[in-house]
Amino acid sequence: MITRNSVVLIDQIDLAIEEKGRTWQSVIDVTARRLRPVFLTAGLTVLGMLPIIRDPFWAPLAFTVIGGLVVAAGLTLIFLPVLYVLWFRVPTETAPDNVEVSAPEPAAAGG
């Protein structure tokens, strides 16, 4: 589940970079959009594990799954975008493509 969330996040970051340009803002926007689906999928699985916490046989499994999902969701939403920005060297802002700025021309005298 977390692997699927990570793949979807990276794919959407790539699509946003193609559309809006290669900036940190593209990565932040996509991560903010994926926040709710990631937390919902992890949260529902955590809620599904809560009933077996009381059982002495299944409690260790439930605690392991819950802890793993919480950590993995955090890593998906925090560590993965940071790693993407560092690995692909995404600039903070779009740099101009060698655009030369010319001085304004003087106004014509006379009338």
Score class of each variant (00 low, 15 high):
Val30Phe: 08
Val30Arg: 02
Thr31Gln: 09
Thr31Val: 10
Ala32Ser: 05
Arg34Gln: 15
Leu35Phe: 13
Arg36Gly: 03
Pro37Ile: 05
Pro37Thr: 06
Val38Tyr: 03
Val38Arg: 02
Leu40Asp: 09
Leu40Asn: 11
Thr41Ala: 13
Thr41Cys: 11
Thr41Ile: 15
Ala42Asn: 08
Gly43Val: 07
Leu44Thr: 09
Leu44Gly: 13
Leu44Lys: 00
Val46His: 02
Val46Gly: 00
Leu47Thr: 10
Gly48Trp: 06
Gly48Ser: 13
Gly48Leu: 12
Met49His: 03
Pro51Lys: 08
Ile52Phe: 15
Ile53Gln: 12
Ile53Trp: 14
Asp55Pro: 01
Asp55Leu: 08
Pro56Gly: 04
Phe57Leu: 12
Trp58Gln: 06
Trp58Glu: 04
Ala59His: 12
Ala59Tyr: 13
Ala59Cys: 12
Pro60Lys: 15
Leu61Glu: 04
Ala62Met: 09
Ala62Asp: 03
Phe63Arg: 07
Phe63Ala: 09
Thr64Asn: 11
Thr64Asp: 10
Thr64Arg: 11
Val65Asp: 08
Gly67Lys: 04
Val70Asn: 06
Val70Asp: 04
Val71Lys: 07
Ala72Thr: 06
Ala73Cys: 08
Ala73Met: 06
Gly74Val: 00
Gly74Cys: 07
Gly74Trp: 00
Thr76Arg: 03
Leu77Arg: 00
Leu77Lys: 02
Phe79Arg: 02
Leu80Phe: 06
